[in-house]
C-alpha cells in the first residue's frame, strides 16, 4: 500500500458498559486503512458491530481503545467532513426537499452568498434527479426518493468521507437497484470516499472496490478483506455472468455462511 492512508482505523476496540461492572466487547482490535476515492463496504451478520464501526468513524460514538485518523487528524466528535446517510433517511419532516438540503448547506458552507446557496442546493438536487420534487415535503415522496434526498443532503456539504448505514436496507429490491446505480454514477462524478454498511452480498460486490468481512460478535473484528477487481462503470446486467463478479460473490458467501455462519437460536 502506498503512502499514508486517507482514513486509518488503528487497533480500535469498542466496549459498551452494561452496568454493575459488566461490559460488552463489541469490537476488538479493528485495523483498516481506506484510500481516498475508494468505495468500501463492510458486511457481516447482524450484531457483528458493523454499524458500530460506522458510528465511531462518524464520531457519533466514542472509541474505547485505539484511534481513528482522517488525513492524520484524530476523530473524536461528529463533523461535516464525515457526512452520514442514515438508514431511515432522517429528513426533517417540517422542511421541503429543498429546505432540508439548504439547511445543511447554510450551516456548513457559511462562506456562500444567498444566491450561491441556491445554485449549490439545486446542483445536488439535480444530481439525484429530484428537480420535480424539490418543493415537496418528505411525507409526500416515496421511500426511494427520500433516501436520494438523504444522499443529496450528505453530498451537498462536500464531505471527505460519505458514511452510509445500510442506506438501501429499508427499500424494495427494484428501488434498491435503482439507487445503487444512482450512487455509482454520482461517485464517478464526485469522487467521494464512501463507506457502506450492508448485509447484501450483491450490493457489496457491485458497489465496492473492497469488501470488508466482519466476524461475529462479541469481540467482532475484520475477518477477511476482498478486493473486487471490476472496472467502472459497472453494469449490473453484464456482471451477472462475469467470472470476477462470481468469484467475489462466492468468496463472501463462503465467509458468511460457512466460515462464520450464524445460527439463530
Amino acid at each position: 500500500m502506498s503512502a499514508k492512508p486517507f482514513l486509518n482505523i488503528d487497533h480500535v476496540d469498542k466496549i459498551f458498559p452494561l452496568g454493575k461492572g459488566k461490559e460488552y466487547v463489541a469490537l476488538r482490535d479493528v485495523k483498516l486503512e481506506i484510500r481516498e476515492n475508494e468505495i468500501v463496504s463492510i458486511i457481516g451478520h447482524s450484531g457483528c458491530g458493523k454499524s458500530t464501526i460506522l458510528n465511531l468513524i462518524a464520531g457519533l460514538d466514542t472509541i474505547t481503545k485505539g484511534v481513528i485518523l482522517l488525513e492524520d487528524r484524530e476523530i473524536n466528535a461528529p463533523g461535516p467532513e464525515r457526512a452520514v446517510v442514515f438508514q431511515n433517511h432522517s429528513l426533517l419532516p417540517w422542511l421541503t426537499v429543498y429546505q432540508n438540503i439548504e439547511m445543511a448547506v447554510k450551516k456548513v458552507r457559511d462562506d456562500l452568498h444567498p444566491k450561491e446557496v441556491r445554485d449549490h442546493v439545486m446542483r445536488y438536487i439535480d444530481l439525484v434527479n429530484l428537480d420535480h420534487a424539490k418543493d415537496k415535503y418528505p411525507a409526500e415522496i416515496s421511500g426511494g426518493m427520500k433516501q436520494r434526498v438523504g444522499i443529496a443532503r450528505a453530498l451537498s456539504i462536500e464531505p471527505k468521507v460519505l458514511l452510509m448505514d445500510e442506506p438501501f436496507g429499508a427499500l424494495d429490491s427494484l428501488t434498491r437497484a435503482n439507487l445503487q446505480d444512482h450512487l455509482m454514477r454520482i461517485q464517478m462524478q464526485t469522487g467521494n470516499t464512501v463507506i457502506i454498511i450492508t448485509h447484501d452480498v450483491d450490493e457489496a460486490v457491485l458497489l465496492s472496490d473492497r469488501v470488508i468481512m466482519m466476524t461475529n460478535g462479541p469481540e467482532a473484528t475484520i475477518g477477511e478483506i476482498l478486493e473486487v477487481n471490476l472496472p467502472r462503470p459497472r453494469e449490473r446486467l453484464a456482471l451477472q455472468h462475469n467470472e470476477e463478479y462470481l468469484r467475489c460473490r462466492g468468496a463472501i458467501v463462503e465467509f458468511l455462511y460457512s466460515k462464520f455462519a450464524k445460527h439463530d437460536d
Partner: peptide
C-alpha cells in the same frame, strides 16, 4: 436520528 443530524452538522 434528528439529534445525530444536528451533531454531524455541528
Amino acid at each position: 436520528d434528528f439529534i445525530n443530524v444536528a451533531r454531524v452538522l455541528q
